[in-house]
């Protein structure tokens, strides 16, 4: 769904103000770390929304790019001792190039097969990370990743990291909104609606599918680097297939073809997960493990059945329709 430039601008300014105010109300590091996670997931889901919602290409392997960002950054900063910014940029370039190379054959697949191939990529990535201990540290992962810094400016405390990740998230949002409302965004939506008609109208569909995958991979890599700087440690468990699927869940719940939906989904799912993680053990004595996934499963099914366009877009469409019906009734 397309919003007018004005709506986008208002929403963006509102988000910016909210983000500037929120830290004043956060009392502990746990709450700040949740907000940092939401920023990282926003970067990831906005990219995935361009790929999945706009261009209609599903990816169940987004954690691979997130992981590559983290591991390459760790390698460059820890093993090679180069500055964090270099690590982040080199990681983004390598990850983007990797997405380009695997994207060319893979994006010729459709629907279920594309889902399966991207999922397979994730499984293989996990195994490589676990097995190639010399490069990745195996199950233990990498330790001692430095904090992000620009010259003398070091983002050390969680509050400083909050500023850093949200500034980058906001930049990603602006760039993505600009892309969506452009010749490129139209081409992506055209690919989604009818590949053959897009092609016949001069859109190089293969090129755009790969291009948007590369873009989403670069976003994911940047998020992965930021996570590594913030956490200081990375280990394979973060890049599990489940995480890729959770990202799809966030985008689907928020609203497939909507940058704002992606942000909403990232925030909503993260908060819901934390809520359930805190509440479930009280409801079920001795509950352990990721029991919240049952709630995700049910919510996901309900959203897909009743608001297949996602919560944001879906409810907006319903509201507009309701208004139109009421107007025509008068």
């Amino acid at each position: 769904m397309q919003f007018s430039k004005r709506t986008n601008l208002i929403a963006f300014v509102a988000l910016g103000i909210a983000l500037a105010v929120i830290p004043n109300f956060l009392t502990n590091n746990y709450q700040i770390s949740i907000m940092i996670l939401i920023a990282l997931y926003t970067i990831l889901t906005v990219g995935l929304s361009l790929l999945m919602g706009y261009a209609g290409q599903i990816s169940l392997g987004q954690a691979v790019f997130y992981g590559m960002g983290g591991y390459i950054t760790a390698w460059i900063t820890v093993k090679m001792g180069l500055p964090p910014l270099v690590g982040m940029l080199v990681a983004a370039i390598i990850t983007g190039a990797f997405a380009y190379v695997v994207g060319i054959p893979m994006l010729r697949l459709r629907g279920n097969y594309l889902a399966m191939a991207t999922l397979g990529l994730n499984v293989i990535f996990e195994l490589v990370v676990l097995q190639e201990t010399a490069w990745t540290g195996g199950p233990d992962g990498f330790q001692g990743i430095p904090k992000f810094s620009l010259g003398d400016l070091v983002f050390k405390t969680d509050r400083e990291v909050y500023v850093l990740v949200w500034i980058i998230a906001l930049i990603v949002i602006v760039l993505s909104l600009n892309i969506v409302n452009s010749r490129v965004g139209r081409a992506l939506r055209a690919v989604h609606a009818s590949e053959i008609a897009a092609e016949m109208n001069g859109v190089d569909t293969a090129h755009y599918k790969v291009a948007v995958l590369v873009l989403s991979a670069v976003y994911a890599s940047i998020a992965g680097s930021l996570y590594a700087f913030w956490n200081g440690i990375i280990s394979p468990s973060v890049y599990h297939l489940t995480f890729s699927i959770e990202l799809v869940v966030m985008v689907a719940i928020g609203g497939l073809a909507s940058v704002w939906g992606a942000i909403f989904g990232a925030a909503g799912v993260t908060l819901l997960a934390e809520f359930l993680r805190n509440v479930l053990p009280q409801l079920l004595r001795g509950a352990s493990g990721e029991q919240e996934i049952i709630a995700f499963g049910v919510i996901l099914i309900l959203v897909m059945i009743f608001l297949p366009e996602g919560l944001t877009t879906g409810s907006l469409i319903r509201i507009r329709k309701w208004r139109a019906d009421r107007a025509s009734a008068k």
Partner: peptide
């Protein structure tokens, strides 16, 4: 895509 997501949802729900 929606149907894939629904069966993935079912996978989560059953696993949970």
């Amino acid at each position: 895509v929606s149907l894939i997501i629904i069966t993935i949802g079912a996978h989560f729900a059953l696993q949970g």
